[in-house]
Write a protein that binds this DNA or RNA. Structure first.
Length: 414
RNA sequence: GCGGCCAUAGCUCAGCUGGUAGAGCGCCAGGUUGUGGUCUUGGAUGUCACGGGUUCGAGUCCCGUUGGUCGCCCCA
């Protein structure tokens, strides 16, 4: 035999229970977002590299170190999408959807790619669901998109230990003022900061706020918060979002340390956080990105949205979704196969998941039915065919009776 | 990209200070030539992740590689 091949580092196969968990997350998200009026989009998994280089900001590690970028055979620079918000905004512009019918509410689910060191709940090919409200500057949009996310967590039964932490990054003016105040504060304590945070002070001072270094945290504790630096408009906006969330019943906790990794965010920034996933504690995160569609070459289109890692949500699911239980049709030998096939067709026609046991003696075929976790077996031998009946065996109760095929089909569809 | 721990049967793991590999579960076959899930008898598991080194001898010690895992970085 040839050497067995392994999956590429950071990728994995979704098989059996893992696939069912993954699928359950997507289906719950589809149901909930449909209730909110989101339409589902599928954008390409690779894009022109500029889609991400423009949108994510050139200080983020996602752009500088983690993108799967390559030159295709035509010499164009292509990148496997590391997230989907930029692609959705690009699609809005490319399809001429910025001109009418706004706001547009978009849901998506699919694979994303980042070249990172794999860990539990973090893969190089991972999957996200996400929701975006495009072309709405109003606080109602922020509140609705967040509430949709919360309702998905409710539908999945994983709200235990999960809270919405929320902050505002303000508008551009607020953020500039705040950034200056932070730089002043951290520069005064420069020598006491960790090496990483000294670098952040140059590149992205807001990032120091969520440093995990203990020394940094002491300095962060005395750092100014953004609220006194907010413009009146930005402060009013944040209050409005919080009020709506209260009405919608989303439990929120203001956390002035929440910042966003990607450059396109402003105003609302939030994370649904759990303590049940170790270092990968953020389960769903997003914010408002009023400038992103313009970066893609469209008109000003204020927007807000979030993304969530399907792998992380799937890990939080308490019970794994049950595999469907088919009915097993068992011809006792080769002779009754024709009658068995007709029965199989009738059952499937009636909407009943049905398997037929292919081979072996009756014992083998019954074992097979059991391994398929069948709920019932329909046994069909020469004597049954002659009498025009089948044996219907309830595999949980162990009871068995003889009855006409049509009656068995009726019984099983109940 | 950085640091810690780990890798033995399909799965979960045992294997002492180096002496040519084990259990449970699962799998296969029989007890039952037309009855599964329970019981019972028997059977097969394997380049001990890969490559090198030390040694008379390496699953065991050393180095490297690959992969996993936990944390950092970053982020969902």
């Amino acid at each position: 035999m040839a050497t067995p091949l392994q999956p590429v580092r950071g990728t994995r196969d979704l098989i059996g229970e893992e696939f069912r968990r993954h699928h359950a997350v997507i289906e719950a998200a589809r149901r909930v977002t449909a209730l909110y009026g989101f339409e589902e989009w599928a954008t390409p998994i690779f894009e022109d590299t500029r889609v991400f280089a423009r949108s994510l900001g050139d200080t983020s590690d996602v752009v500088t170190k983690e993108m799967y970028s390559f030159e295709d055979r035509g010499g164009d620079s292509i990148t496997l999408r590391p997230e989907n918000t930029a692609g959705v905004c690009r699609a809005l512009v490319s399809n001429g959807l910025t001109q009418s019918n706004l706001p547009r509410k978009v849901f998506y689910a699919g694979p994303m790619f980042r070249y990172e060191r794999p860990q539990k709940g973090r893969y190089r090919q991972f999957h996200q669901i996400g929701a975006e409200v495009l072309g709405a500057a109003e606080t109602l949009a922020d509140a609705e998109v967040i509430a949709a996310g919360w309702d998905i967590l409710v539908a999945l039964g994983i709200t235990d230990g999960v809270v919405l932490e929320i902050n505002t990054l303000g508008d551009a003016e607020s953020r500039d003022r705040y950034r200056a105040a932070l730089v002043e504060h951290f520069t005064a304590h420069r020598e006491a900061l960790s090496h990483d945070s000294q670098v952040r002070l140059e590149k992205n001072p807001l990032r120091i706020l969520d440093s995990k270094d203990e020394g940094d945290r002491r300095i962060v504790a005395t750092a100014p918060t953004i609220e006194p630096h907010l413009t009146p408009a930005a402060a009013t906006f944040f209050d409005g979002v919080l009020r709506h969330l209260d009405v919608l019943g989303v439990p929120t906790r203001k956390n002035p340390r929440i910042v966003r990794g990607l450059d396109y965010y402003s105003h609302t920034a939030f994370e649904f956080v759990t303590d049940r996933l170790g270092a990968q504690g953020t389960v769903m995160a997003g914010g408002r990105y009023d400038g992103l569609v313009e970066e893609m070459g469209g008109p000003p289109t204020p927007s807000v949205g979030w993304a969530a890692g399907i792998e992380r949500l799937a890990m939080l699911l308490a019970a794994s979704p049950a595999a469907p239980r088919p009915v097993a049709v068992i011809p006792v030998a080769e002779a009754p196969e024709t009658a068995a096939l007709a029965l199989v067709k009738a059952l499937r026609g009636a909407g009943i998941a049905t398997e037929i046991a292919y081979k072996g003696n009756l014992k083998r075929r019954m074992e097979r039915a059991n391994k398929l976790h069948a709920r019932a077996a329909l046994i069909l031998g020469e004597s049954e065919v002659a009498e025009g009946v089948v044996q219907l065996r309830d595999l949980d109760a162990g009871t068995q009776e003889s009855l006409p095929a049509a009656e068995a089909v009726r019984r099983l569809s109940a």
